[in-house]
Design a protein around this nucleic acid. Structure first.
Lengths: 328, 328
DNA sequence: ACATAGTGTGTGCACGTTCACACATTCTTG
DNA sequence: CAAGAATGTGTGAACGTGCACACACTATGT
């Protein structure tokens, strides 16, 4: 900047004003712009951050194993939604990968070191070191999803997994199915446990524990495994609630192999409304998860905190309309 | 830091030495550590960056539409590979989303503003503004993949798409297939064009243009579409090279619907060795793409430049072994 | 006794900006 | 025509660090 000022025959202050706005004569502005081009000057953000006390960047963190993240269709959409909002406000979204204990430690430093002004955090937990840093530093943040062990007062955006699961199960039951099972995935995660409990609520007295197959992940292979378990326990099964669309796709594959018609013999519903839902044949009836909107609102909440407003207590549940296609 | 020094009754210099290493007496060190804990001091990275002229961060950029990125199984693995290497060297990988012209402009500033010391860039093109910034600034970087319009001298890591496609096509032909077609996806991308030309090379005089179905994307739906096209043009087809595993999975779905046996009636091979390859039934014969290793080597090349070494001219092609399973 | 090496500590400058302030010039207005 | 507003410009301090240097003290060897 000093070089630019010298080349244009003005002071640093005037150069700063040309960059950040202020009273500058046309002549000086022209000279400075020429000098900037000639010198190849680019403002040093580290210096600017230092004096401004902000970085115009917001972190995006997913506190799950990366292998899970990569195959989860929602997370990418959440990220894109957050980026769209942040981009409009001229903030840079910075996506951090946490893949090891070493990563966690480094990211902790990164967050507290002034690299970012805020954070959107997916799958936060109270006992996580990263969550702790965020709360200790009072870093403006929004959590996506709402683990039960998170204290009140921290803003979050999410969906009502229990209610949504209950709603689609009821819808499935309303088609006249008598023996409805569930492929419950990842019940160690809140979303997984909530979907199972919504299923149970919907069935009420008709709920039978043996018609729930537990599988570890939300993926296709788990769906195949779960479907096989279910049919072994109850061959006359005529309805299935799969904990995700990928699980449903795997389940449908098994049904096809065994020659059972969907939805003729067995009606099946999923969860997420991901690309899977339209890839299956017949297309899947499922719960639409507004992932992009979740990301957008989460980013918006961070931005709002950044502009000084204290977040409303609690959080926001976004609506999850049922998309009824042909699989049930 | 000043507060810590005051609380511990020492000077800033001594505090700096207990953080960064140097001669410090045991008494002073204890006092300072107590003071750090009490004050809740965390070093300000912006200030450190300013004086050190580096940020200990490396950017990860994919210059493709985000919708493509999300469904590409390789990119996530490349990122994880890069992160593993950078993490070991105590560098933070920073993942940037470019989703609009506005993003491009902002990222350009981000890169030139000292936020990162280097970059791993996937799918770079010479005419891209981000690529230009990187070359103009001489920012230590590695490109993944090797578009033909990129100048020589820029280091890159990639695979030999032409050679790999030729090899697996030859392998397929060696099983005795007489009428081999290809579902060529994304020929507007270098990888797509190269895979097609490898296929053509393998078949030589036997290559027939009408046995190539062109589809826009590397995905499942494109695979279904391409397979239908191919069978319409040549019902007696007995071999298919699909441009990706997802494409192959879609193609197999169509074959199954039409009652054609794989590999009995039609032998089919894919590309990538992604999770798709083991999800199909029968499991897919395919070209293994060492995505994690690509990311690791790309990161390593950045690190090497960061430590002062000038990169070797040209780049490195990683080996792509054929994984022969049951689909051909 | 003296030089030298090793250990421990404080001070001032630099990094590249932004911002408040002081000052200069021109334009408006009663 | 004087007073005040609007416009334009330069200067110094600050942001929070790391590092070179100066300095003080102790141990070792000649």
């Amino acid at each position: 900047m000093h070089d630019v000022a010298a080349a244009a025959g003005v002071s640093r202050g005037t150069v700063s004003r040309v960059i950040n706005g202020g009273y500058v004569s046309a002549a000086a502005r022209a000279a400075i712009e020429a000098a900037i081009a000639e010198v190849g000057y680019v403002p040093n953000t580290a210096a600017r951050n230092l004096v401004m006390q902000r970085s115009q960047a917001v972190a995006f963190l997913v506190l799950e194993p990366p292998s899970l993240i990569l195959e989860d269709p929602n997370i990418g959409a959440i990220m894109l939604g957050a980026n769209a909002v942040l981009s409009t406000a001229d903030y840079q979204l910075v996506n951090l990968v946490v893949d090891s204990a070493r990563d966690t430690e480094r990211i902790t430093k990164y967050l507290s070191g002034g690299f970012v002004d805020g954070a959107v955090i997916v799958s936060a937990r109270a006992h996580d070191p990263i969550t702790r840093v965020v709360t200790d530093l009072a870093l403006p943040a929004t959590f996506v999803g709402h683990p039960p062990d998170l204290e009140q007062g921290i803003p979050f955006i999410g969906i009502d997994n229990v209610g949504s699961a209950r709603a689609i199960t009821e819808r499935l039951a309303a088609t006249g199915r008598k023996r409805i099972g569930m492929i419950a995935a990842a019940v160690d995660r809140d979303s997984g446990a909530d979907r199972l409990s919504g299923f149970q609520q919907a069935l009420g007295r008709r709920f039978k524990p043996e018609l729930v197959a537990h599988v570890p992940f939300y993926d296709y292979a788990s769906g195949m495994e779960g479907m096989r378990q279910l049919l072994q326990r109850e061959p006359r099964l005529d309805g299935v609630f799969a904990a995700s669309d990928a699980v449903a796709a795997g389940a449908m594959q098994v049904l096809r192999e065994l020659g059972r018609a969907v939805p003729g013999d067995v009606g099946i519903v999923g969860f997420d409304d991901s690309p899977w839902a339209q890839r299956t044949d017949p297309a899947l009836s499922t719960v639409h998860q507004p992932a992009k909107e979740i990301g957008a609102q989460a980013a918006d909440l961070v931005l709002r905190q950044l502009s000084g407003k204290t977040p409303e207590p609690g959080g926001i549940f976004l609506p999850t309309p049922i998309v009824w296609r042909a699989s049930a």
